[in-house]
Computed example of a mutant assay.
Amino acid sequence: MSQADTRKSIFITGAASGMGLATAQLFASKGWFVGATDVNQAGLDAFAKDAGADNCFTSVLDVRDGDAYAQVLKDFAAQTGGTLDLLFNNAGIGAGGFFDEMNFDDVMAVVNINFVGVMRGIHLAYPLLRATPNSLCFTTSSSSATFGMPGIAVYSATKHAVKGLTEALSIEFARHGVRAADVLPGLIDTPILPEGTQDGAPSEGMFRLMPASSVADAVWAAYHTPDRLHWFVPEEIGELDKAAGNTPELVREQIKNTGPLAAVIKEMEERAAAAK
């Protein structure tokens, strides 16, 4: 008998901190068998200690390593009898700055982790999802997938790609009974945020600071809501998504001149000018 027994299972990348950890903790508390992976061994060990060794599978995993990813999924599947109820592609990194001033190796690291790593995980895990009734392929996109965000252009581009991939796969995978959806978080209190961001975050509005648990709640709700494609955290992000689709030029001017990123952009420009 597998370690998971008859329990539902979730496999999470980027599970050692932030949204991934909050999701791992929530699903473990709900009685699911949790596969938690990350590059952070200490964070995984702390989760395993809290969840209990019988309730989880943990492994260090860099999503850029295809061979390692395939082996980790094989080891996980051995504990679940070859099934997977929910794949949560959450691992991601951020790198900010003006695109033309970024080191291209940093650019490609964002692309390879945030998008190529997501595609790799979905492709490798799909046989497990297909073997499991009502399974869900769920991925972390971002509010920056509503409109390309200055200062994080490459990150934003990868999240647009994730959103588009999810929409296409939600149609393709339906032929095998597998669902696909994503979450588009706004400003979430996680280690990926630049230092000091929390202090300057607005207390209200769509870019107010939200706890990592709010994303975990969205993952839980997504599994139990078969027809919904995009999950916005907070819900107001959905209004930005609509506006960006209907009036992108207006949204561009608002972001540039009066939006929540205007002050950040101005500071970046002043810092760049001072460095010359």
Rank of each mutant, 00 (worst) to 15 (best):
34 V>Y: 02
256 K>H: 12
243 A>R: 08
87 L>R: 00
71 Q>R: 15
113 I>W: 05
244 A>I: 12
265 I>P: 08
215 V>E: 01
145 A>Q: 08
217 D>L: 12
169 L>T: 03
31 G>A: 10
18 G>Q: 10
37 T>S: 13
236 E>W: 07
204 E>C: 05
58 T>R: 12
67 D>Q: 13
164 G>F: 04
94 G>R: 08
72 V>C: 07
10 I>K: 08
167 E>R: 05
127 P>S: 05
36 A>W: 02
164 G>A: 13
233 V>I: 15
67 D>H: 09
87 L>A: 06
256 K>C: 04
148 G>H: 01
42 A>K: 14
185 P>I: 09
40 N>C: 13
224 H>W: 06
214 S>V: 01
158 T>D: 02
106 D>V: 08
116 V>W: 13
262 A>R: 13
171 I>R: 09
139 T>D: 02
98 F>A: 11
241 D>K: 01
20 G>C: 10
38 D>P: 06
276 K>N: 14
170 S>R: 14
168 A>T: 14
227 D>Q: 14
203 S>F: 05
166 T>Q: 02
60 V>E: 10
223 Y>E: 11
196 G>M: 05
114 N>K: 02
232 F>P: 11
203 S>P: 00
58 T>L: 11
254 Q>K: 04
41 Q>E: 14
32 W>A: 01
202 P>F: 13
46 A>D: 11
96 G>K: 01
110 V>N: 01
102 M>I: 06
40 N>D: 14
251 V>G: 10
193 L>A: 13
260 P>H: 10
165 L>W: 07
74 K>L: 11
63 V>W: 09
191 P>T: 04
109 A>Y: 03
212 A>K: 08
98 F>I: 05
276 K>Y: 04
92 G>P: 01
39 V>N: 01
72 V>A: 13
43 G>T: 13
136 L>D: 00
135 S>E: 06
212 A>H: 02
133 P>S: 08
122 I>F: 05
176 H>W: 15
197 T>S: 15
114 N>T: 04
171 I>Y: 12
267 E>A: 15
42 A>Y: 07
241 D>C: 03
22 A>F: 04
131 A>S: 15
4 A>S: 15
157 A>I: 07
1 M>Q: 11
85 D>N: 15
170 S>F: 00
173 F>G: 03
201 A>N: 11
270 E>H: 00
